[in-house]
Design a protein around this nucleic acid. Structure first.
Lengths: 211, 211
DNA sequence: GTCTATAAGCGGATAGAC
DNA sequence: GTCTATCCGCTTATAGAC
């Protein structure tokens, strides 16, 4: 592992545990097993580290999304649930970032630009995915406006479910994650077509046979 | 205005503008028009100030909620929308708090206790309000589980709509606030009884006549 | 690339006069 | 209650040797 990567890995861990304020560059250097001076050879300052982490996040998220697209048929309920679950895992992995998001992007215009670009793209992706689900006969047709609101709701729930658990003092585990999915399902349900509902019921009884 | 109140007012403003990290006790004292030493006469430290702000928030929120209960009939769609709008106004007034919530309660166990108690109570309030709406024939009856999920969803949307706007780089104004309400409505709609839908349509045409 | 040493500055917090 | 003065400790960041 290269020094630069060691720094990033140590920083992610410390930021997640203590927040970006408490985790000083000295702490990060110590955790990475290098000297403070060396850290400054690789990064100009803390913000620079955070930006590097964001770039890693971004790439990781895209990669994970591709995995889903390759594995399950897009536009299905299963694909929506897998996406939701993936986003939670992603948010957990970089949980300091979402926790401190507003503060971070308030203090670093460059980071803000990067983040919001990704944010917009992902909302668009969610929406296209939903539109595809309509065309597949999984979701009932809806107006332009309804589609926009529904997509935004899905995206908001996915973004903040982890935060919601955290601020409520609930542990993040399989059970609470599943509740997020149940909540999502509860929202989607009235919008599913009859065929999709039947398919869903089948899947609930036992893992579906392929095809 | 008493010095203690001046400090709190200045702190809220600076925290909202710059975050709790950038706003040092020295800055707060300067903004309040007093000396740093004097600030420490009234508060033991920064955390102490934040806790005092939280207590003010709590009282303010309860007061605002009472106003709604007194003005509009509980268990109606209008009451839900008013509540949502109130929460947004509240979240905006103390926006630093929600922005940095997880970080703040991670660093101050006492504050965590205070916050989570309120958090739980409010979720309960939302749920009771929804149950009342069912008993009033506004919401369709639903299972225990569905009621829990639906209430949690309402509460999550109310909690995070402002954050959602902020991280997306959207201004907080009447239009974006209204979108939050539209989103909420979109979620509630399939759960409304036929009578409630008729009532809603009436209200949309013109402000309803009383009774 | 990596280290040690250290400068420079800031924020938190207290003492003591008024 | 309020001020001024000040101290301590820590963090960031750099310089210069290896």
């Amino acid at each position: 592992m290269k020094t630069r990567e060691k720094i990033i890995a140590a920083a992610i861990e410390l930021f997640n545990e203590q927040g970006t304020k408490a985790a000083t560059t000295n702490h990060i250097a110590a955790a990475a097993g290098i000297s403070p001076g060396n850290l400054y050879y690789h990064f100009r300052n803390k913000e620079d580290i955070i930006r590097a982490i964001f770039e890693q996040m971004d790439a990781y998220g895209l990669e994970q999304y591709q995995l889903i697209v390759n594995e399950v048929r897009p536009g299905t309920v299963e694909s929506m649930e897998r996406t939701f679950r993936m986003i939670q895992e992603y948010n957990w992995r970089y949980r300091f970032f979402k926790r401190e998001l507003t503060a971070l992007i308030m203090g670093d215009p460059l980071l803000r630009e990067l983040f919001q670009r990704t944010h917009r793209n992902l909302l668009l992706l969610v929406r296209q995915s939903n539109e595809f689900a309509v065309s597949m006969g999984v979701l009932k047709p809806m107006s332009e406006n309804e589609m926009a609101l529904f997509s935004e709701e899905f995206w908001l729930l996915a973004l903040f479910w982890l935060n919601y658990l955290e601020v409520g003092g609930e542990e993040v585990n399989d059970e609470t994650l599943q509740r997020g999915i149940d909540l999502l399902r509860n929202t989607i349900k009235p919008r599913l077509t009859d065929e999709a509902l039947i398919e869903l019921a089948k899947r609930a009884r036992g893992p579906a046979s392929p095809g």
